[in-house]
Design a binder for these strands. Structure first.
Lengths: 118, 118
DNA sequence: TGAACAGTTGAACATTTGTAGATATATTTT
DNA sequence: AAAATATATCTACAAATGTTCAACTGTTCA
């Protein structure tokens, strides 16, 4: 039998559960996906992404826009950098940030459609 | 002048920052968006969504699939329900869960593409 | 060189989040 | 009606997260 210690009696599903188990993504991919969404899943960072979609901006601009300290913004930018959602370019004293990826725009607008639907 | 206390000297951006500020989404929408991504941003919940993409499943099935207690699974299902990502249907003693929304599939595969790209 | 500016980093703190354990509810079976 | 099953809920606690404050690096300009 597939699984003797199955946690419910949905016999119809035992086979399917086995199949899904085998087709499940590996742990590393799973964590990468989760980290990607975690990076977007914060209202401050969404505002940053939203802004960078309109224009490249430096840290002070963002701090001004969001009414936050540059330190707090810098921390959030680091999170977004680690998740490879934004890229930066240095010019003199300033560091200019911009979106790194077309996927971000696509995902944000799909989510926007989803959220507005209700 | 646009903003006297601007946090950096990027004069070129002051005007743009002002424009972006006005076009910024309202707080409620912002939080809805963040909550939506927060709901997906956890490896356990991604596994649940991944599984439900293949088949409707009941809580015990998922607990078995993920090697977790039904309590923990139920808790995560509640998060996904609150975010309107899944729906459920009762049948006798069982509760069957399934994806609520086509957007979820779309977003998951876009994210998948993004993550694999690197 | 030194003062001012832009940004980053690390530690500390409060808050949020995920899971387990115990208990509660609802449905079916005997 | 009682026992068994499936799920939900409540509480508690460890782990993760966001912000602030202070210290630090690097750049420009006098």
């Amino acid at each position: 039998m597939e699984n003797v210690n199955h946690k419910c009696s949905c016999d119809a599903h035992r086979g399917i559960v086995g199949e899904i188990k085998q087709a499940m993504p590996e742990a590393p991919l799973l964590y990468d996906l989760a980290d990607f969404f975690k990076a977007i899943g914060d209202s401050t960072r969404i505002q940053i992404l939203w802004a960078l979609e309109k224009s490249e901006l430096c840290v002070g601009d963002l701090a001004d826009l969001l009414n936050m300290t540059t330190s707090a913004v810098s921390h959030q930018l680091k999170t977004l950098r680690t998740a490879k959602l934004i890229r930066f370019r240095k010019e003199g004293k300033n560091v200019y940030y911009s979106l790194d990826d077309a996927h971000v725009h696509e995902i944000l607008s799909t989510a926007f459609a989803h959220v507005k639907e209700r």
